[in-house]
Amino acid sequence: MSMTNADYEKAKRNRTLKLKLWLLFLILPPAAILIVFVFVPMGSAVWYSVFDWDGLVRKEFIGLANFQDILFNPLKNKVLFNAFMNNVKVFVSLMLVQNGIALVIALLLARNPKGYRFYQVVFFLPVILSTVIIGFQWKLFLNPVFGLVNKFLHNIGLHDWALPWLGLPETALNSMLLVNSWHWFGFPTLVFLAAIHRIPKDFIEAARLDGASEWRIAREIIWPLMAPAITIITVLTFIGSFNWFEIPYIMNGLEGSPAGSTDMLGLMFYRTAFGSVSAGGSNFGSGSALAVLMFIFIFVFSIIATKYLTSREVEMN
């Protein structure tokens, strides 16, 4: 039984076909999930955004009027701008505070201090807690009357420091940012730590032999070489900041209380699309338009940021 040339060709084709089917099998389920749960909702948001849908029933097609309304109606764009600037502040603050602390801790943990595993677990613990629980818990801690934070401040004699943290426009957002940082800093810590561990020890020892101080090593050797981790965390923080919803919603409500100082694009979207007792009825048209604007902004900026940040990454070898 010897095989002819045609037999070989057939067997070869058969093999390619099998490989193709296998690839198809691997790709189809995630593609289906992506289409049903990402592309279809995205598409429908774009579709809804061009209709007058103030209330329960979708009315006529109105083109870009919803967008125009959000962007140029002086009352709405004031709210939009306020919320947007708050989101910007969230992003900048989280980059500095949450990710800054994470970087410092990662640098310390990377030196394998005693109890390294213990700290790693402890720092990561808040990340696995539910955001809802954390928001609620810290709302209680920060309560001006019963809260632990102010009780503690009174006990150590800092009576002037015991402020209604969540009630003052100057402190409300910052308090929530600290809570969010507390909740999440373990995640960038872990990513940074992995990135630092990925840097060959030789680089650091070589620098040490070259006489570089620890600060200089961190700045000139470790920092540039952990660029991929910085890219990931920056982009994730950016997306997270502009989609920030749970903590502000739980801790200061849908209206961005007090007086809009904690208003976010996400809260504004929710209020607009679904309505609320105080804010009035639902408007899916306007809400969808806002969602589309948010999506375009986040998408475009994430891509630009990724492109820019990736360009400054170096391969280790």
Binding site: L75, K76, V79, G167, L168, P169, E255, S257, P258, A259, G260, T272, S278, A279, G280, G281, N283
Partner: peptide, 23 residues
């Protein structure tokens, strides 16, 4: 004034918070 957006309630609540805190 709860028929249009922003509603009178939204405006007044935010305004009262600013008023009471002296802002």
């Amino acid at each position: 004034f709860r028929f249009d957006t922003p509603t009178g309630s939204t405006l007044l609540q935010s305004g009262l918070q600013e008023l009471m805190t002296g802002a």
